[in-house]
Design a protein around this nucleic acid. Sequence first.
DNA 1: CGCGGCTTTGATGTTCATCAAGTAAAGTGG
DNA 2: CCACTTTACTTGATGAACATCAAAGCCGCG
Lengths: 232, 232
Amino acid sequence: MGKDENAQCNCFSCIVKNLIFEHMSTKFQEEMCSSKKELLFKKGDVIVSQGQPVDEFIYLKSGLVKLHQQKPFHHDVIIFIAKPFDFITLLTIFSETHYQYSITALEDTEVCKFSYDKLREMILSNANFAFAIIQRMSCVTNKIITSTTELNRKNLRGRIAQILLFFSEEIYQNPNFTLPITRKEIGELIGMTTENVIRIISEFNKDGLIHLDGKHIEILESNRLKAIAEKG
Amino acid sequence: MGKDENAQCNCFSCIVKNLIFEHMSTKFQEEMCSSKKELLFKKGDVIVSQGQPVDEFIYLKSGLVKLHQQKPFHHDVIIFIAKPFDFITLLTIFSETHYQYSITALEDTEVCKFSYDKLREMILSNANFAFAIIQRMSCVTNKIITSTTELNRKNLRGRIAQILLFFSEEIYQNPNFTLPITRKEIGELIGMTTENVIRIISEFNKDGLIHLDGKHIEILESNRLKAIAEKG
DNA sequence: CGCGGCTTTGATGTTCATCAAGTAAAGTGG
DNA sequence: CCACTTTACTTGATGAACATCAAAGCCGCG
């Protein structure tokens, strides 16, 4: 194919953006690259399904995904939204045999995969890598835990304010953005009904905090929004 | 003092109970033991304070503690309850410079401490240890995340049922136990007001699901309680 | 003995979910 | 490309779940 070298090159430039690999030897990076599989998913595609065995380590190269969980008698819950350079299976790969959640693409998404055995081997043969994984896990889980405990103490207005700021600041770094999820999914993410999501968002629109046009949102008064998120 | 050898001996017998150290060399175990500090805390003592710098790895040898967080404008939230052999600082030691929560003893408690630098050194020099830490972190964080997402979808009766089963099954392994926390703290743990905690617990008592006597609780009908926790 | 925190119960009010019904948008098959 | 179906969005009315407020008894502790 002649494309192999090219792929490796792409992989290198992708990987170097990622802190974990910053201090790894090039030999080590090549070893990782050569054992990886690259896959494309369209918006809406299911990347992993709840209940399936966990046997791969997955890295999000581009796009946006949601981790979500379904339970009998209950509607879906979105655990969190992952963005490029997140290791989206880090939550379970070391502790569970089967996925307790599904991962679904919210936008067109590229991922890289390694086998669990390969990952384990790399950890056991490279303590720096192991330490980097530990730090990465700690960050991810910490973020999930603090954000969910914070959401739970807020009232509905505070939650909506929080989630709008999240998309604006953490995902798009722009006060102007297009929501990648439906109103229903916002409800699943912050624990409220679709109707109330809609009600409160359009309330914010009327109050001049945001400008609303379908899925497009512009944050006009981020300070007032932050105050609502804080006090909520 | 002549007690040093004794202490090391205790430490060994304590440590071997812990899966992490199962496959470590005795030399390695001795190295860890010799650098540890052992401390005692009385019920109610604060073991670490929110806002303080994170510089130690703490292991819970005996007793029971709560990890809890306070925020301006909001009441306390209990993040989780740790039991013996838990690594109670694992949540933040690798990702934060300062504690985002406090740890307080719920019963008389013994802990062991290492410096962060020592821990880091041990990880970098022993890949098996690193891997064990990774697995341990994964288990702890997974448990916290799944239990909080599950609690959040339940109604108040479901939450109370859940928490009673938690103490009975996970903490005391006995249908007969004495609550280590106040009604107010139960509210902080499962996100509801003290008054409603009381109301629902005594409702369960009247309905014959449990037998209640102050802080002493006996679970009479665990199956019905489980059904309430499930469907809640 | 008296003070403060814990517990309990009842009354009231607010927030939020549920239900209902209708419009807009987006995908589907002929 | 148009009828058709489905899914998303929106608004209002109602009721249930839960928080808040108030008052009083209990218990441990200085």
